[in-house]
Amino acid sequence: MLVYSPQLNAAFVACMEDVLDLYQQPFDEASPVICMDEKPYQLLDEARTLIPMKPAKPERQDGEYIRQGTCSIFLFTEPLAGWHHVAVRERRTRIDWAHEIKELLEVHYSETSKIRLVMDNLNIHS
Rank of each mutant, 00 (worst) to 15 (best):
L2R: 11
Y4E: 09
Y4M: 08
Y4V: 13
P6F: 10
Q7G: 01
L8V: 07
A11N: 10
V13H: 01
A14V: 14
M16F: 04
E17V: 11
D18W: 10
L20A: 13
D21M: 02
D21Y: 02
Y23F: 04
Q25S: 09
P26R: 03
D28V: 00
D28L: 03
S31V: 00
V33T: 13
K39N: 07
Y41G: 09
Q42H: 07
L43Q: 15
L43I: 15
L44H: 05
L44F: 04
L44T: 11
D45I: 04
D45H: 08
P52K: 13
P52D: 05
M53K: 11
K54W: 00
P55F: 11
A56M: 10
K57Q: 13
K57D: 02
D62S: 10
D62H: 14
G63F: 08
Y65V: 14
I66S: 07
I66L: 08
R67I: 06
Q68P: 03
C71E: 04
S72T: 14
F74A: 09
F74V: 01
L75G: 00
F76Q: 06
F76I: 04
T77W: 12
T77Y: 12
P79G: 07
G82H: 02
G82E: 05
H85M: 01
A87Y: 08
V88K: 13
R89T: 15
E90V: 11
T93M: 00
A98E: 09
E100L: 06
I101Y: 05
K102R: 14
L104K: 05
L105W: 09
L105M: 13
E106F: 10
E106S: 12
V107L: 04
T112Q: 03
S113Y: 11
K114S: 01
I115E: 00
R116F: 05
L117R: 13
L117I: 06
M119L: 15
M119Y: 09
D120L: 08
N121I: 11
N121Q: 10
I124V: 15
